[in-house]
C-alpha cells in the first residue's frame, strides 16, 4: 500500500496563546511546535503499522514554510519513508487541500490519511476536501481501520453513534482516537530521519477563499465562587437562582 499522510504543524498543547500586530497574527515567540496530535498519533502511526504488516510506503506531506522542516523531520524519525513540503502559507483549507490533492494525483496513492482536525484552527476541512478534489470516498472520524488486499473495514463516528463500513482503495480518511497508540521516535529513527528525503515543491494553487481578519482572546473568567462542602445544597440554589441553568 502506498499511503500519504497529511501532517500539520501546530503549537504544543500547553503553549501560551497570544497575538501580535494588533491581534492580526499569532505570536510564535517562545512557542514550541509539534505535529498535530491527531495527524501523528492516529493517522501516521496507523499508516506505519499497515506498512510494517503489509509492505508499501508512507509519505508525509505538509504545507508551509521552511520553519516547518524540524516538525516534518520528526515524522520521518517516527518512521515515514519520505516527506514533501509544499512551500506556501497554509492559511486557507481549500488552498491547502488543492495543493495536496494536486501532488497526490500526480504520484498516485492507495490511501490518504489526515487527522480529524488540527488543534490550532479546529477546521476538520482538509481531509474531505482532498477526497472531493481527487473524487475519492471520504471516511471521517475513523476510530478503527483494517485492510485486507484492497478492501478496508473502517469504524467511524457519526452523530449519535458509530458505523462499520467497507470501502475499496483508493480513499481518504480522517483519523480519531482509537486508530493507534502514540509512538516515541527512537535514536535509530532520529538518526535515519536526517538523511531521508524531504522534497520541497512549489504550490500548484495560489487562490485563497478565506482570510483571517483578526483574533480575540476570550474574556477573562471571573473568580470561582466557592460553596462550603458542609452545605452543598447552596450550589444547587446558586445554579437555579443565580446562574439560572437548572
Amino acid at each position: 500500500m502506498k499511503i500519504l499522510v497529511c501532517i500539520s504543524k501546530v503549537p504544543d498543547t500547553t503553549a501560551k496563546i497570544a497575538f501580535k500586530d494588533n491581534n492580526t497574527s499569532y505570536d510564535t515567540n517562545g512557542v514550541q511546535f509539534i505535529i498535530n496530535p491527531y495527524d501523528e498519533w492516529y493517522a501516521l502511526v496507523r499508516a506505519l503499522e499497515i506498512k510494517e504488516s503489509q509492505g508499501g510506503s508512507v509519505t508525509v506531506i505538509n504545507v508551509g514554510g521552511a520553519e516547518n522542516d524540524p516538525t516534518i523531520r520528526k515524522a520521518l524519525a517516527i518512521g515515514a519513508d519520505d516527506a514533501v513540503r509544499v512551500n506556501t502559507l497554509a492559511s486557507d483549507a481549500l488552498n491547502t487541500a488543492q495543493n495536496i490533492a494536486d501532488y497526490a494525483k500526480k504520484e498516485g496513492f492507495d490511501m490518504v490519511f489526515c487527522g480529524k482536525e488540527t488543534i490550532d484552527y479546529n477546521g476538520s476541512q482538509v481531509g474531505g476536501m482532498i477526497a472531493a478534489l481527487m473524487d475519492m470516498p471520504y471516511i471521517s472520524y475513523a476510530s478503527k481501520m483494517n485492510i485486507v488486499e484492497s478492501k478496508a473495514t473502517i469504524e467511524r463516528d457519526i452523530q449519535g453513534g458509530k458505523e462499520v463500513l467497507e470501502v475499496e482503495v483508493p480513499f481518504v480518511l480522517s483519523a480519531a482516537k482509537g486508530m493507534a497508540e502514540a509512538r516515541i521516535p527512537n535514536m535509530r529513527g532520529i538518526m535515519a530521519a536526517r538523511t531521508k528525503p524531504l522534497n520541497v515543491i512549489e504550490p500548484s494553487n495560489t487562490d485563497y477563499m478565506t482570510e483571517i481578519v483578526g483574533y480575540e482572546l476570550p474574556p477573562a473568567k471571573g473568580e470561582c465562587r466557592f460553596v462550603d462542602a458542609e452545605n452543598p445544597e447552596e450550589l444547587i440554589e446558586l445554579l437555579r437562582n443565580e446562574a439560572k441553568i437548572i
Binding site: D120, E211, Y215, E216
Partner: peptide, 15 residues
C-alpha cells in the same frame, strides 16, 4: 473558536 477554545478568530469568506 480557534486554538481549542483558547481564542476566537474572525474569518472573512472572499469567494
Amino acid at each position: 473558536g480557534v486554538f481549542s477554545g483558547k481564542a476566537f478568530a474572525n474569518i472573512k469568506i472572499l469567494s
